[in-house]
Amino acid sequence: MLWSLLFISLIGSAQNDDGTALCNTQLLPLNRTKTSQKSNYTDKNQLIYSSERATDGNMTTCAITGTESDPWWRIDLLRVYNISYITIYNTVAYNTDISGAQIHIGSSSENNGITNSICKEITNFKQNEWNNFTCITTMSGRYITVFYPGNKPLILCEVMIYGTITAPSSARNFKSTAQNETSITLQWNKVNDYISFILQFNGREIDIAAPDGDGPVTYTVSSLTAGTTYTFALFSVFENVRSSGVSITAVTAKRPNYVLVMNVEFELLTQLSDSDLQSVLEEVFRQYGLSPQLSFKVLRREIRKD
């Protein structure tokens, strides 16, 4: 199906399909995205032209569907981006002119993203060139689908996507789940497999990687001071962009003070009642920074005559 070889060098800057220069955008990282297509074409040598070949950085390897009705190719960016434009390259070969295809952008995976809004209908596609497609209005989305109505195979040799990275969602259910005199255990909901976290407190920042599994994230902060209130701020991070963050306060447990047995002998000029004696003992405890919670029993009273 593909018979041409490509030897090409690219010089210059990207432009819109109307010839104007594109600014203030960046090439989005596609190495951790997920691609799919309606079906895979397999050649006589059993080489499978699968969907990820359109984002492998090699313009001579192409993703190709089978010959069937209404083929599509989709990329899941795994999070929402503001999409500036999409650029597609195809070699000169049979069926590589994809004029008539549609580019859909949105955050719904329903019907393989075809139900999302149309960014652009492809016309006058040029082979052996980068074709840049800009949406009529600014569009945001997680899924980008190239839909090709008809009964031809869809061929995409290389796809690049430009846009701006939006801040990731902040973690939910951020809370303290346990504490003792020197540590506080924090917990929050995982955002997804690609979102890491930064925890801030007392002028420190701790990087926390995205954990495996679907359960909540748990982190214990240690070497704290007993009986102290701490403020923790948690930020979700993706591609060095932080969320707005969430914060909580938590308190370490107070260090307990114990007095098991205490014998006290007073020599007083006047006789005191039991309640007076308790007041004197409470004042002694306060002077040493101890909690004046006590019970006592007078064992013996003596009256000295000098």
Rank of each mutant, 00 (worst) to 15 (best):
F238T: 03
A14Y: 13
S223M: 11
S99Q: 09
L234D: 11
T252E: 09
G113W: 11
N240H: 08
N180D: 15
D43K: 05
R301S: 05
F285G: 04
Y49I: 12
I122H: 04
G66V: 14
L156K: 01
V259S: 02
S117V: 12
S176E: 09
N16M: 11
N124K: 11
Y219L: 00
S39I: 06
E158G: 03
P211K: 00
I248L: 07
T145G: 10
I75L: 07
L260V: 04
D76V: 12
R142K: 14
N24M: 03
D70A: 08
E158A: 06
I248E: 07
A171Q: 07
L22W: 11
V191P: 11
S109W: 02
I136H: 07
G66E: 14
S69Q: 15
P71R: 06
C23A: 11
K152H: 10
G106Q: 12
G289N: 08
M1W: 15
G215Q: 11
T252Q: 07
P71Y: 01
T220S: 07
N95P: 01
Q46A: 09
G66Y: 02
L268F: 11
G163M: 05
E282C: 00
S176T: 14
L199G: 07
R301F: 04
G289V: 08
S279H: 10
K190V: 10
G12I: 02
S236A: 15
S223V: 06
D207H: 12
R32S: 15
Y194A: 10
M139D: 10
Q127P: 00
Q26W: 08
N45C: 05
T225H: 02
T185C: 06
P29D: 14
S176I: 11
I206H: 01
S51D: 13
H104T: 05
P168A: 00
F285A: 06
L22F: 10
D214E: 13
T231F: 07
V191R: 03
Q127T: 15
V92R: 09
N124Y: 04
I83N: 01
P216S: 09
R255D: 13
Y258S: 05
L224H: 04
R304L: 13
T164S: 15
L299S: 02
A253R: 09
S107M: 07
F125H: 03
W3G: 15
Q293H: 08
K38H: 03
L281P: 00
R32K: 07
T228F: 04
S183A: 08
N31L: 10
A209S: 10
N16G: 12
S291P: 00
N45E: 15
S291T: 11
N95D: 14
S140D: 14
F133W: 04
S169L: 11
D214H: 06
G203Q: 05
A233D: 11
G12F: 07
I122R: 06
I184V: 12
G213M: 00
G213V: 01
S183F: 01
T60W: 03
K38E: 13
D70K: 04
K120I: 12
S50H: 15
Y143E: 06
N95S: 09
L154T: 08
T55V: 15
I161F: 03
I64K: 01
I165Y: 02
F266A: 05
Q127F: 08
T25H: 05
